[in-house]
Design a protein around this nucleic acid. Structure first.
Lengths: 200, 200
DNA sequence: AATTAATATTGACCATGGTCATATTTATTA
DNA sequence: TAATAAATATGACCATGGTCAATATTAATT
């Protein structure tokens, strides 16, 4: 079974070791071939365990991806919390951009993130969904610290930024015509969203 | 092969007939068991053709879904174009709601729509992606006709509405806690988005 | 009508994610 | 430490989407 934070005794050395072997194997494959090329068969072969073992540790392939990708997103958020809040809209977008670029580095990754961002339909909220909540908190802080509109709750504003970011990322995968870079498009949305009761 | 609008001679009676059989079979299955339960095997069995035939008509299962779902969305948009534009924000949301409810009737459907809304990574823009473009046009018209802000391009505003709607639908699938109905949440976003330079 | 070219259909086969009864290992108890 | 219970690991097996060389049908050409 899958041990997520707050569950009963996930102890037992062997378990942790196997789990680590699986994750290591997966990360190795991902770093050489990308997320989309990961095959469960190859993970278990690399980790030298049986196929069934994989599914004893992760509910499905998505769950492993969820875990690994959320780890990367969390690293970005850690970085965000380190740095000072951006002092204007351009800096705001520039700060955010690397995360958006990671999320769109592969179509597969973006689809998976999208699919998991709204929390699993199940009872348990997944790792990526948690990073989305955390992202809202970070963005809300940025907004609260910056020269942005004050007539709307920072959380709503932050959720809006997230929605616009998703929109931009989705359009990023669009057909030929759409050559507008993500950050340019994002500014198009965020200007009227964050700077609305215009200050001169 | 798949004949999308604007391609060469899709004629030949037999082809059209087979294609219709496949779509009919799919719709029959969907109406009785839902989109998520559709199996290609069952479609071809119901349509009394071989499995390979399915893939001669549709690039993959998603392509068929794309076609059928886009048909339903287009029906909503037809309805929207029939009726007069909503005269305030509440009516705006109420008009839109049935479409959002259709899109969220099954998790499977929502995921598929999301995946296809940003246009296939390929060269050809798919049916659902086209409905999204069309939706922007309809929403832009609504916005232009209604008592909404005029300081931003109606197309940008419409794209924003779409982004917020997607956000609300995604959150709709969230875990237990999230009991806020979609329309309530949508209003939370659209009020500051569409009514920003507030009129009394 | 007969021949040829283009198009459509077929179904055995493959790739890959996921299941589950059984076996093995670890923890607990007598 | 031996016996027992609980937790883990195993791999044959299944479900399902998708491929493709071979076959059959329709259209075009003589």
């Amino acid at each position: 079974m899958l041990y997520s934070s707050g569950m009963k005794k996930p102890l037992q050395k062997r378990t942790l070791a196997t789990r680590a072997k699986l994750i290591d194997a997966a990360e190795k494959i991902i770093s050489s071939k990308g997320f989309g090329a990961l095959r469960v068969e190859e993970v278990v072969k690399t980790a030298a365990v049986a196929k069934g073992t994989f599914f004893a540790h992760f509910h499905d392939k998505d769950a492993l991806m969820d875990l690994i990708i959320s780890g990367e997103i969390d690293a970005f958020l850690d970085g965000f919390e380190q740095k000072a809040s951006p002092e204007d809209l351009d800096a705001f977008i520039l700060h955010l951009l690397p995360l958006l670029q990671f999320m769109t580095r592969e179509r597969y990754v973006f689809d998976l993130i999208l699919r998991h961002s709204g929390a699993a339909a199940k009872e348990e909220i997944g790792p990526i969904a948690r990073t989305f909540e955390r992202q809202v908190m970070v963005l809300a802080q940025w907004i609260s610290d910056g020269p942005f509109r004050k007539d709307v709750s920072t959380v709503i504003l932050a959720e809006g930024v997230q929605a616009f970011a998703v929109q931009c990322m989705a359009l990023h995968f669009c057909a030929i015509n759409n050559e507008m870079p993500m950050d340019t498009r994002l500014k198009l949305y965020l200007e009227p969203w964050l700077l609305c009761p215009k200050a001169p």
